[in-house]
Design a binder for these strands. Structure first.
Lengths: 288, 288
DNA sequence: TTTTAAATCCCAAATAATGGGATTATAGCA
DNA sequence: TGCTATAATCCCATTATTTGGGATTTAAAA
C-alpha cells in the first residue's frame, strides 16, 4: 500500500549491524546512508513493517523477527542440514570431550559455518561461529573448502585476493597457491593449528554435490593442549568418514521426503503487520 | 551499480519460502508476484548479490547466507538473549528429563520463540520452534505474553482477531476475553495442556522491560504422561523464578559490556559479491 | 500549559524501476 | 562440429515511484 524503498537501501541498512553494533538509530541511518530524514524514516518504517527491523523503544532499531523466521525456514528446508546434522551429531558423540564439530560450506568468496555440534564436556567457544563469514584461506575448514573449488574459480579468486592470500601465508605466487591447494586435494583432508583460535586444532574433510551445486566440509575442532598425535590421526579418519557419509547421503537425498508441519500456525500477513505497531513510535528520548 | 527492485518485492519474494517449499524457481516468482520475466530475473539477481538468495544449481533459488549472518548478529547482539540464555540453561539443568525450556517474546500480532534449551534426556520435538510465528492465543507461552500486553493493544487485538480468538476458545466476547487475560495476569503464570502439541504441558511466566519495550516469557514444556501434579507445581515455581530473574537482569543490563570480537574476519563486501557467481547461471534443465 | 524535539504527512520534481522484445549464451542432440 | 531449443541477459523509451524539503502533528518534558 505505502511506498517502500529499494533493496539497496535495505541491504545497506542491514549492513549497519555488526558484532559491536546491535542497535541503529535514525540519525545513524541518515548519516551512514546519506539519506534525508523523511526517507530514512520511511525506509526504516518499511523494513519494520516487513519484520526485518524491530523498534527498541526509545533507542533505535534492532534486527527483527523476520530474521529468525527466515533462519528457521533455512534450517528446516536446507537438504545439507537435513542430511548432515545426524552425521555431525554422531561425530560429536564419539569426539574427544570439549571438542566441536562444524559443518561449513562455501558462499561467494568466503566460507560459512552453517551448523555446529558440541561434544559433551566443558565447552570453549569457537570463533568459527554459525553465520560468521570467514575468509577462504585461513583455518582448516576454509582451506578444505577452497581446495574443493574448481580450477577457474581458484584462479579468479587468486586474482581478486592475491594480497590477502599472500599475507595469510597461503601462497606467495599463483603457482605456490595452486600447489598448496593441490596438496590438500590429494590428502583429502586438512589440519590447521591455531589459525583461527589460539590453542585449537582444526581438522577438516570436504564434500561436494554437483546436484545442488554445493561445496563444503565437516570439521572437528580439538584443543591443542589435550590432543596427542594419535588423537589427531584418529580424528582425521573419523572426519573423513563423516564427510564421505554426508556426500553419499546428499546424493540419494529425495526432496519428496519433507517434514509435514503439524498445522500451519498463524503467520501474520502483510496486512496484519501493517496495522500493528510496526511503524516507529513517537518521541525518542535524547539522552544527551 | 545495477538496478535492484523494491522492498515490497523483496519481502514478497521471501514470503514464497515456507515449511514445505525451500526452493523457488524463476517461473514461480513470475507467477506468484505477477512479474514479467526480465523483472523477475533482475529482482532475484539483486537479492542473490545481496546474499539473501542462493542459487541451487539448476533447480532455482534457496535462502542465502545473509540470513545466517543476520541471525548470528541477532544472537550476539540481542540483550534479551544475552541475559536470558544462562537463565534458561540453569532452568533446563534442573528440569525433568526430556523437557524443554523456551524463551519467547511478542512480535506484532504474534509470539515467537527466540531460544530453546533442551533438558538432558531423550528429546522430543516441540513445535513451538525458534523462529516460528505463533498466534497470540494458543499455548501457555502465547497466552502469557498476551496477558502481559497493555490494555489498548489487547482491545485492538481483539477487534482484529475476534473470530480466531473465538475459534481458539479463548473468549466468546470481548469481556470474556479480557477476563481470561486478567486471570492470567493475576496468577502470574499460565499452564496449558496439549494446546500446541498433544501430550505436552506448557508452563509459562512473563517478564517485561519498559526500557527496551519488550514483553516475553519463559516456558517449560513437559511431557503430560510422565508429569505428576507435584511436578507441575514445582515447575511453576521454577519458571516464575526464572522469569523474575530475567526481568531483573534485563533491568541492570549495561549495553557497554559487549563481547569484543577477536578480529573481524572477512566480510565479503558488495563489490566482491557482485563479481562472484551471484547472478543466475545459464540454462536450467527442464525436467519435463 | 508551554516548550521542545521527534515522527509523520504532503506533493511537485526527478529519478529509477519497469517490461516487451531483441540478443546472447548454454546445453542437449544429431 | 554444427544445429536447435531454451534459459538468461541486455536494451531503452515509457512510466510509475521514490525522493526530499518543509509544514504539520504528536508526545514527552519543563
Amino acid at each position: 500500500m505505502a511506498g517502500t524503498g529499494s533493496v539497496q537501501h535495505l541491504s545497506a541498512l542491514l549492513d549497519l549491524f555488526t558484532d559491536r553494533q546491535w542497535i541503529v538509530t535514525i540519525d545513524e541511518v541518515m548519516a551512514k546512508l546519506e539519506l534525508p530524514r523523511s526517507t530514512a524514516y520511511r525506509t526504516v518504517g518499511a523494513l519494520s513493517r516487513a519484520g526485518f527491523l524491530d523498534r527498541v523503544s526509545d533507542e533505535g532499531y534492532s534486527l527483527g523477527p523476520r530474521i529468525l523466521q527466515l533462519y528457521r525456514l533455512l534450517q528446516v528446508g536446507d537438504p545439507l542440514l537435513q542430511v548432515a546434522r545426524p552425521v555431525c551429531m554422531a561425530l560429536a558423540a564419539t569426539a574427544p570431550r570439549g571438542s566441536a564439530v562444524l559443518l561449513c560450506r562455501s558462499y561467494f568468496d568466503g566460507v560459512m559455518c552453517v551448523h555446529q555440534e558440541m561434544a559433551p564436556g566443558p565447552q570453549e567457544a569457537v570463533s568459527y561461529q554459525v553465520g560468521r563469514p570467514m575468509p577462504l584461506y585461513r583455518g582448516s575448514s576454509s582451506k578444505t573448502v577452497l581446495a574443493a573449488l574448481d580450477r577457474p574459480r581458484l584462479t579468479k579468486l587468486y586474482d581478486r585476493q592475491s594480497d590477502d592470500i599472500r599475507r595469510a601465508g597461503f601462497g606467495e605466487s599463483r603457482e605456490a597457491f595452486l600447489a598448496n591447494v593441490k596438496a590438500i586435494q590429494r590428502a583429502g583432508y586438512c589440519v590447521a593449528r591455531g589459525e583461527v583460535d589460539k590453542g585449537r586444532i582444526g581438522i577438516s574433510s570436504p564434500f561436494a554435490d554437483k546436484g545442488i551445486g554445493l561445496t563444503g566440509c565437516i570439521s572437528l575442532v580439538l584443543s591443542e593442549a589435550s590432543s596427542t598425535e594419535e588423537d589427531i590421526s584418529r580424528a582425521i579418519v573419523q572426519v573423513a568418514a563423516a564427510a564421505h557419509d554426508t556426500m553419499q547421503r546428499l546424493a540419494v537425498w529425495k526432496p519428496a521426503t519433507r517434514s509435514s508441519d503439524i498445522d500451519s500456525p498463524a503467520r501474520p500477513d502483510a496486512t496484519n503487520r501493517a496495522t500493528a505497531s510496526g511503524s516507529p513510535s513517537r518521541r525518542a528520548r535524547s539522552t544527551s
